[in-house]
């Protein structure tokens, strides 16, 4: 009897999120990605606590230029004798912030465009999606380079430049989800209780589109981080002396033969971040897909 009751209780407690988590947990690679990404996130949030900016990141030490990793400098030092560990830790902040900002920007704009196009359909849909198609036709890196060249280098412009290239993806994903949901009976039922179109989109349709959007967020976040580094590497993103993985790589490239560690650590940071985000995204996609439900 009590066993039955507890079984019932257990069943009741299993909300949708809990079920997704159960499925996610079984995926070892995804859990690995989640752990790594959480670590990177924590390091970047608490960068100031972990490494002092003034003494470790800005302090130059010309007696100790391009030193190999040692106890004092676990990642070694760069061409001005600055601690690479400190610079990698602080560099994560800008990469992640710009990555996140660009995702938020494109999600907001692309998601809204896609939802409106999908929900209202017809001529408006055609107009919006053709404009989106034009954006899609331009390679994202070239687009970002053009925007940065036109607007000038600043953190905000960087977010904008990277974010714009994600807009088509979000618009398309959102539009297709909304079209699939637009004619469902529960949307009709919501109309029958007098809900406004905006209410229907926000409260009835949007929660149903979360799965593909969530996966896309992790994927494009990874791509955003990569793009920040790419732009910084070619000198259009964040310029030295501000530490950023891309510009660190860019200067380290010149000393590749003499001090390979200068390239190795920022490169590893980029690779790890993107790997963890991709693993996380893959895991989420599998966990959120109800067809794979056991």
């Amino acid at each position: 009897m009590s066993e039955q009751a507890s079984a019932l209780k257990k069943y009741k407690k299993r909300s949708q999120m809990a079920e997704v988590w159960l499925r996610f947990r079984k995926n070892k690679a995804a859990i690995f990605g989640l752990i790594i990404f959480t670590c990177i996130l924590l390091v970047s949030i608490f960068a100031d606590v972990l490494v002092d900016y003034e003494t470790k990141v800005k302090q130059q030490d010309f007696m100790n230029r391009m030193a190999s990793p040692s106890w004092e400098h676990p990642f070694g030092t760069d061409e001005f004798g600055r601690d690479i560990l400190g610079r990698v830790v602080h560099g994560s902040r800008l990469s992640l912030a710009v990555g996140l900002g660009s995702v938020a920007f494109s999600l907001l704009l692309g998601g809204t465009l896609g939802a409106v196009a999908g929900y209202y359909g017809g001529r408006l849909d055609n107009l919006i999606m053709r404009i989106v198609d034009i954006f899609m036709a331009i390679p994202s890196t070239i687009m970002a380079i053009t925007i940065m060249a036109a607007l000038g280098a600043s953190t905000f412009n960087l977010m904008l430049a990277i974010g714009i290239s994600f807009i088509p993806t979000y618009a398309r994903i959102m539009r297709s989800s909304v079209i699939g949901l637009r004619n469902t009976e529960f949307v009709e039922a919501a109309k029958a209780i007098g809900a406004k179109n905006s209410t229907i989109i926000l409260t009835e349709i949007l929660p149903n589109c979360m799965a593909p959007i969530l996966v896309q967020i992790t994927m494009s976040f990874a791509f955003g981080v990569l793009n920040v580094s790419t732009l910084s590497f070619i000198g259009l993103g964040i310029s030295p002396p501000t530490p950023e993985w891309g510009n660190m790589l860019s200067t380290a490239r010149e000393y590749l033969r003499d001090a390979p560690h200068m390239c190795f650590f920022p490169g590893m940071a980029i690779a790890l971040t993107i790997l963890s985000l991709n693993l996380l995204g893959d895991g989420l996609r599998d966990a959120l897909d109800p067809k794979l439900k056991q």
Binding site: E185, F186, E188, A189, A192, E204, M210
Partner: peptide, 12 residues
Amino acid sequence: FQDPMTSLNPVL
């Protein structure tokens, strides 16, 4: 509506 399975929003 006819079908209660589909006239309720599954995620609310």
